[in-house]
Design a protein around this nucleic acid. Sequence first.
DNA 1: AGAAAAAATGTAACCGTTTACATAAAATAG
DNA 2: CTATTTTATGTAAACGGTTACATTTTTTCT
Lengths: 343, 343
Amino acid sequence: MSLNIHDIARKAGVSVATVSRALNSSGPVSPKTLQRIKQIALENNYQPNSIAKGFAKKRSETIGVILPSLVDEFFSEVLRGVDEEASRANRYTLVSSSHDQRNIVETLLEFMSSGRVDGIILMAPYIHGDITGILDRSKRPLVLLSSGDGLPQKSSFNFDNYQGAYAVTEHLIKHGYRKIATITGPEGNHDAEERFRGFKDAVTHAGLNVADHFIVQGGFTLKSGYYGFMRLVTQVEKPDAVFAANDMMAVGVFEAAKSLGMQIPSSIAVAGFDDIFLSRLLTPRLTTVHVPIRELAIKAVRYLIQMIDEKVDPAKVYHEEISTGLIVGGSCGCTNSPDRSFL
Amino acid sequence: MSLNIHDIARKAGVSVATVSRALNSSGPVSPKTLQRIKQIALENNYQPNSIAKGFAKKRSETIGVILPSLVDEFFSEVLRGVDEEASRANRYTLVSSSHDQRNIVETLLEFMSSGRVDGIILMAPYIHGDITGILDRSKRPLVLLSSGDGLPQKSSFNFDNYQGAYAVTEHLIKHGYRKIATITGPEGNHDAEERFRGFKDAVTHAGLNVADHFIVQGGFTLKSGYYGFMRLVTQVEKPDAVFAANDMMAVGVFEAAKSLGMQIPSSIAVAGFDDIFLSRLLTPRLTTVHVPIRELAIKAVRYLIQMIDEKVDPAKVYHEEISTGLIVGGSCGCTNSPDRSFL
DNA sequence: AGAAAAAATGTAACCGTTTACATAAAATAG
DNA sequence: CTATTTTATGTAAACGGTTACATTTTTTCT
C-alpha cells in the first residue's frame, strides 16, 4: 500500500499533526519545516487518503446528483454543468440515474444518511408522497432542479417555463395565426404544466380562445409529437399553428408534416421548446425557446455548495427561475431567420 | 447527527461487533439477537455511515469513470451503461469529465491513490506519455474504454472499428461505386485510425485504389463533415460515394449536399459510423454502423468489478473487441430500407 | 536579561466501522 | 455429568487522517 501521513511524518522527523498542518495550511508551520515536508511529500508522491480525510472531517467533498435517467441531451447537459461546477469547487460528483421511482427513493435515503455526499442535487420531474416524506426529514443540504414547486420547502432552480411558452406563443400570434394548437407534455410533469399555462395565457390574453380539440396530450417523445400532429390535422377544423411543448415532439411534427406532404410554415407553423441540437438541423430551423441547462445546473451547484459551507442558511429556502430566450427560426413563418446556424 | 452503530448496540444491549455481524451477515449471531438488532435498526432507521465503512474495509464500493467530456450522445450512453451496471452490483459511480489532458492526469492520480474509488474506467481517446506513465504504476484495477491498444498492458474494451468500417465500405462497393472517398476522424484518435484502416483495406481488397484526393481529414464534427464534403465535390474528379468516419460528419455531408442541391444517394452515396439517434431522422436514413455503447460500458464494468473482487487476476490483461453491426439505410442506394424507424 | 507573548510543534483523542482474538454460553460426545 | 467442540458474544485495536490542547521554542518588549 502507499504511504500515509505517519510515514511522511517519520521521514520528515516531525509529528503527524505538523504534516497535516503543513499540507493543508491549517495551522502555523515554520517556513523551513513547511518546505521540507512539502518536499518529502512530493518526492514520495504522497496522496492523502481522502476517505480517511472525509471520515475525520465528516465531509466527503462530494456532491450527489440524482437524475431520472441519462438518456437525453437534457440530462447529460445537467450532469455536465454539475460536474463542471463541482470540479471547479474541488468537489467530486457522485451520480445516480435512477431508473424508477423506487430507485430514487432508495438512492435518496442512501445519499442522505450514508455520509457519502455533502449535499444533493435532485432532479425529479414527478415528485410524489414518498419523496416528499424523505425530503422533509432530510438532514443534508439539497436543491431541486427543474422539479417544479411541488416542494416549496426546499430550495429549487427552475426554468421560467411559463414565460418561455408565453413568449413563443405570443410570437406565433403576432404572425397572425388564430387557430393555435398545442401538443402538451406528460401529465404531472411540472415543466409541461407550466408550458401549457404560458401557452394558454398567451392565447387568452390575445383575445383568442383555447379550443379543446386544439389541445392534445403528448409525452415529450418524438412519437407522441408525430401522432399528436396527425390527430390535430385530421380534424374538421385544422389549426394554422402548433406549439409543441418540447423540441423532440416538434421533430415528430416535422416528420408527420413531411409524410402528409404539408409544408412548414406555409401550410402550418410550428414552434417548440428546449432548443435541442437537433432543432438547428430542421428545415426550416425550428422556432423554439432556449433553456440554459448548464447555467441552471451551475447555479444550483453553486447554491448547494454555499449551503454546505454554511455561507447561506441551509434551512432557508430559495427559489430561482431562470429566464429562457426565444429563438426564432423559419418554422413560425419568419423569413429572416439565420440558416445553417449549426456551422 | 444520526445514530451510529454504538447507539444501536446500546439499545439492543449487545456489543458493536454483534451489531456489525448481524447487519452484515458476517459472522454467527443467534436468531433472536439477529431479529432484535434488525428490528431496532429498522425502527431507528439506522444507516451505517458508508464512509466509515469504506475506511475500515479499505473499500469504497465506488467505481470512478473518467470521460473526455460529456457533450455527446456517445459519452452519455457510456455513463448510462456504467451507472446501470454499477448500481446493479451495488456500487456507486463517481464521474469526472475531464476537460483537458492535464485534467485527466490529475483526476487519474487522485482517483488512484485517494482510496475514493475501488477501480477506474478510463476513456481517453488520445493517450499520451503522461498518462502511460501514471497507468504503469497504477495500483488500482483499471480498464480502458474505447481507447485503442496504445496501452497493451492494460485491459481494454473496444469496438471492432476495423470490421465495421470494412463492412460498410464493402457494402458501398457492392452497390457498384468505384470512386469512394472518406472523411476521416481526427488524427491520433484510435477509433478514427481503425475506421480508416478498415475503409482502406475494403477498398484495396476490392481491387480499387485509395486516391489521395479522396481522403480528407475531418474532426468528428458536423462542421468538418460539411466542409470536408465541400472539398471533395469541388475537385475535378468527384467521388460517387463517401464514407464519413462518424455520423455527425455524415450529417454535415447531408447538409452540404443539400446546400449544393445534390441528391443522396442518386448524385452521391453516403455512409457513416456510430448509428446516432440523428442518423435515423435523415432522409434518406443514413447507412451506418451500429456500435453497442451501453453493452461496451456494461462489459467493461463487469470486468472491472471482477478485477476488484479478485475473481480475475488484476495483473492479467484482457482485451475485448465488441463487434459492430451494419445498418442499412437509403443513403447508400438501397431502396428497401425501412423508413420512419424512429417511430 | 527576564518576563510575557507569539509561534511552532507534539500528544493523543476522535470520527464509525470492521475484525482478530479472547471469552462465555450452548450443544454434543463419551 | 464432565470434557470437548461448537456457537455466540464481547473487547479492543486498527484504518488514516484532523484537531483541541499541552508543551516547547522563538520572538518581542521592557
